[in-house]
Design a protein around this nucleic acid. Structure first.
Lengths: 141, 141
DNA sequence: CATAAATAGGATAAAAATGTCCTTTTATCT
DNA sequence: AGATAAAAGGACATTTTTATCCTATTTATG
């Protein structure tokens, strides 16, 4: 479902949702170490998300990555789409040609609803929602 | 969710469930052409499934791949597991360490149930079930 | 202004997944 | 027995994904 990049990206962004704000910037080294993820690789992902406006960054001393309040109010799906690409996420499980509700592939009825529900779940919660669960300790990264 | 190999494997096996039996063997060339899949690559997958006993094959003139009745009564999940590996299928969406129901990753509650339901859907239907839908024309490959 | 600390970005490496080609083996048919 | 047609399998090629390294740029601070 999610590529390795997608997984790192989600965890990195949620990490920032939990630990960062305008006055608490976080370097990619600390972040990636805490996540147990390859630092340079995660740095690239954060750069990309920064270019696309999902994450903020500032260079120079005391710089780092962080999320603004408005960024924390976005949903996770947007970030995942940025990394994975919209197509790939909505694709037919079998890559059958022209698979859709009217012309369903053999697994469509089994797979598509679940896939959709998962994506909707990601769309319905903000980064803050996830962050507060993590802070409460009811889920983790 | 499924790798390209997994997708080809599912489609190939269902193709055999629809079109083959002990007296109607099918060559990998025809099969892969009908599916629009790379012939040599699909051949490898069929060989693997044949070694593992999910598919039958016979060499020599008039040989080919086919499913026995008992093979057609198995469920799709077994075949997918063979190709994808059990681990990968049950893995945490985020690859978070030790993610489970008691110690859930941030996406566990959103992702895991859907994932499980999908896999159960695959387990509950036999290849024959899928094949008959395809024959009826209510789904396709 | 110099220095240090941070991200940005380019180039490259390594690994994994996907795909192709060619030879060997096996079975069937004439 | 020989010809033919099929899968089996090994080797290799290509592409994509993942990962690392090095330099440039930016910024705060002493």
């Amino acid at each position: 479902m999610l590529s390795q990049s997608g997984k790192y990206a989600v965890r990195a962004v949620l990490y920032l949702a939990v630990h960062s704000d305008e006055t608490n910037k976080i370097g990619f080294k600390k972040l990636s170490e805490d996540l147990g993820a390859p630092a340079a690789f995660v740095a690239k992902l954060l750069q990309e998300l920064s270019r696309k406006g999902h994450v903020n960054s500032s260079k120079g001393k005391n710089g780092g990555f962080y999320l603004t309040e408005s960024q924390k109010h976005k949903n996770l799906l947007e970030i995942i789409i940025e990394i994975e690409g919209k197509d790939k996420l909505n694709n037919c499980v079998l890559d059958a040609s022209h698979c859709n509700h009217k012309h369903p592939c053999a697994l469509h009825h089994i797979a598509y609803p679940k896939q959709k529900e998962f994506l909707n779940g990601l769309k319905e919660k903000t980064l803050l929602d996830f962050a507060s669960e993590i802070k409460k300790g009811t889920s983790f990264l």
